[in-house]
Design a binder for these strands. Sequence first.
RNA 1: GGUCCAGUAGCUCAGUUGGAUAGAGCAACAGCCUUCUAAGCUGUGGGUCCCAGGUUCGAAUCCUGGCUGGAUCACCA
Length: 596
Amino acid sequence: MDLILNLTESIETILKNIYNSDIDKKAISIQKTRIEFEGDFTLVVFPFLKISRKSPEITANEIGNELIKVSYIENFNVIKGFLNITISHKYWIDFLYQSLQNNTFGFTDDPGEKKQVMIEFSSPNTNKPLHLGHIRNNLLGFSIAKILEANGHHVTKVNLVNDRGIHICKSMLAWKKWGKGVTPDKAAKKGDKLVGDYYVLFDKEYKKEVELLINKGISEDKAKVEVPILLEAQDMLRKWEAGDEDIVKLWKTMNNWVYEGFDVTYKNLGIDFDKIYYESETYKKGKSLVLDGLEKKILKKKDDNSVWADLTAHGYDEKILLRSDGTSVYMTQDIGTAFERYKDKKFDKHLYVVGNEQNYHFQVLKLILKKLGYDWYDKLEHVSYGMVELPGGKMKSREGTVVDADDLIDHMKTTAKEMSKELGKLDEVSENEAEVIINRIALGALKYFILKVDPNKNMLFNPDESIDFNGNTGPFIQYTYARIKSLLRKASDKNIVSSAFPKNDIKLAKKEKDLVRLIYEYPAIIKEAGTEYSPAIIANYVYEFAKLYNQFYHDYPVLKEEDQDKMIFRIRLTEMTGRIIESALELLGIGVPERM
RNA sequence: GGUCCAGUAGCUCAGUUGGAUAGAGCAACAGCCUUCUAAGCUGUGGGUCCCAGGUUCGAAUCCUGGCUGGAUCACCA
């Protein structure tokens, strides 16, 4: 039975007995005792004053005198209106041993809680390589998926590749014009990078042509839409939609180059998907659903043949769903994709991990699906997150102010390698092992840096001050783990069997108790991270945990402790700490090194 | 202009279901390696929690108004 729940019930009963009056359970607020006071948990007694009709101090003492009769409560003290409760050492020790028995401590496996969850993340365009913004998206999506699994759900990770549209035609056209048949192999370049280069080339040429037209006296607005190269790209898109063989062939070839490039990046990042949806395969479904809606008069057609959803009654604007030439827009394919996915999985929940710039889009998507009569519309949820900004502001691919995902990962690896060498950390391990460790550290630093920030908030990335390896960082936590592993290896060399229990009662030091209390919190942390869709909650928890363990490690001997019972307890505490660090980092998609 | 999000130390961020003297890391300075890994530990300095009202025994947290920054309201995705 959960300790806090138990405490709450005891307090409820006590209040009833001594004051003869019921109190709302919500008024019983139990929190962690602040570090500077004696005790484990604190009850705030102010809400009870109106039934006790006594001063805060007296009320707290009266409750404390009853509470101390409960077996696992050892002591209490009162400071102003705060009743600090001390849980017995024996309770905490027993708790540690119980949690050691449980291999998935902190995870939920209640079948009643299990839901089918689909989670979409990454959602790249096929005209340019992945950048730092995608990294935040990918890491968040992947971690949230893991957290939801830890909460007992069945999770399907899906990607939506935006593989059709004018943007890919731009790359294709530029490649046709200036590529001279180059391929990723010939250029010795990742496919996504190569295609991205031609996208940039298109943009350069486009700007040049716009300027030419303006110089000829054409207005800027007009010039922008009448540029020959743009018209050519649009023509290409029409041909693609009409199924022109050559165009489709080129489209397939170039997209495949990009996918191969993406796969490398995904693999380096350590993320994967269960299923990939392609916009080119779902937009037609969206189109037909829109036409259905039109037939049922849910949607309306304007004079120019464009199709619209009128959302003004709901406080939104009108939203276009089919252009006047009958082609579909972003929203159209999202309607189709959602429909296909519901057909595939009958999900209880569908999460879209997409940046906050699309908050409006997803509100409108839900509303349109509702209007179209799909009662599962409210199973869709937008997991919105803030942008990654550079010191100069937003990243813009066209202005070259993007931080490329591959470059960043490489840079992290180089830095990790240099630092390991400098510190002489990996002199004694094989080259292969060293590389595995360095990769883990590099990615650990990057992932933790990004995931520790509350997803709601924009975050700043300064490329000049590269990501740290000291302090509140991934490597700090990984280092704590490596130390723990080293210590446990030594314990096992000494034949101190890990399943041992102390024979006699021991008294716990403050930091030992604090560590156990943090272990106790882990299940609640996983739950909270699951309901909030926030890996940051896990990240901040595991940091606090590692920090406290390092203090303990510094202050107390473990293997050199002379009291056998204390030594055994400390080894077991160390073991559990290692397990929680490993488990928590795993939820963030971060691997742990056995040594570093 | 409407809507949404954010504003906490020089910088990057925690803390927000109202609770005690607002916390970390980085940066600066000063210490700790003949003891289980110094990518560690300890200490010093650093705050108008954007502002003004309000609710409350109690507000960084809730309410109202304002200020600042970002996003969005496209026949772009």
